[in-house]
Nucleic acid binder design. Structure first.
Ligand code: ZN
Ligand code: ZN
Ligand code: ZN
Ligand code: ZN
Lengths: 145, 145
DNA sequence: GGAAAAATGTAATGTTATTACATATTGGCC
DNA sequence: GGCCAATATGTAATAACATTACATTTTTCC
């Protein structure tokens, strides 16, 4: 049975990188959260079993995981979320709920290419990744209605 | 001759609000900047003529101006930018250059409604405002090429 | 086993933002 | 004008988010 951590490990191995114990712990916390976590929440969690953990511990590890595509940073929440589809090439379109702060990631939406072209018509070249769309998730619409 | 500040004043008057001296100063700095400014840059600027200015001074004023639609917050830059088209109803689509940190605001792009519908198909309701698209502005493409 | 590179530990500091409460200013009412 | 209530601003402290610089440990490779 391949767990998400196993997948991450082989994904990194393919790229000549290692899933060290520290990285495994951070990624594991993010996967367990099923949603975005703040850097200092992760720090607190790490400190349970690793007394010396400090801000650089967590930020360095997050930088690595983000760089490898295993984690995304959500600017509008100043938070980090495990990528559920890191193995597939994708665009990183994040639907960020303004009420519950949940994040849903869309794989490669068909409209993405159109959007890129429309924006390109203004002379601006979109980054491949990291489009955040704010709004209300389905659950929160019902709760609000 | 109606300056942008005059327009802002009457825009606020229409809504029963006032452009106080403090608000005028903050908005004026943002307009002069022709681009995003950090809260603490604004604070430093304010302190030139207002020795007691402190973080709440600037954050409160920014909250007000953002709430009135005269200023937008750019999450990805942790910065604030004067809205060049506040008088018109618009969608607040921001093209944020990752190299020079310039921001260009698109009025109401024709593709916005399509995007909203496509996203709605997933069950998510987009906010009317505040879509940030990261990439490279035209000038920076040429500089990079 | 020893040198170089990668990863982590540690201390200090920088940057962004909020809370809580005090004071001042404005506008309506008598 | 005098008073009250509401709005706006001042002030002090602190919280929350993130980076720099350097030391130490661990891994890799010869
Ligand atoms: Zn992803
Ligand atoms: Zn929600
Ligand atoms: Zn605008
Ligand atoms: Zn640029």
């Amino acid at each position: 049975m391949m767990t998400p951590l196993d997948h991450a490990e082989s994904w990194l191995a393919d790229r000549g990188e290692k899933l060290t114990e520290l990285r495994r712990e951070v990624l594991s916390h993010l996967l367990d959260a099923h949603g975005p976590m703040k850097a200092y929440e992760l720090l607190t969690a790490l400190q349970k079993g690793r007394p010396g953990a400090s801000p650089p511990t967590v930020y360095r590890t997050l930088d690595f995981l983000v760089g490898m595509g295993l984690v995304h940073r959500i600017d509008s929440l100043q938070s980090f979320v495990a990528c559920p589809i890191f193995h597939a090439p994708h665009q990183g379109v994040m639907l960020v709920c303004e009420r519950c702060h949940g994040v849903e990631e869309l794989e490669s939406p068909s409209w993405m290419e159109t959007l890129r072209n429309e924006v390109a018509a203004t002379g601006f070249v979109m980054n491949q990744h990291e489009l955040e769309i704010k709004g209300l998730c389905r659950a929160c619409q019902e709760a609000t209605a």
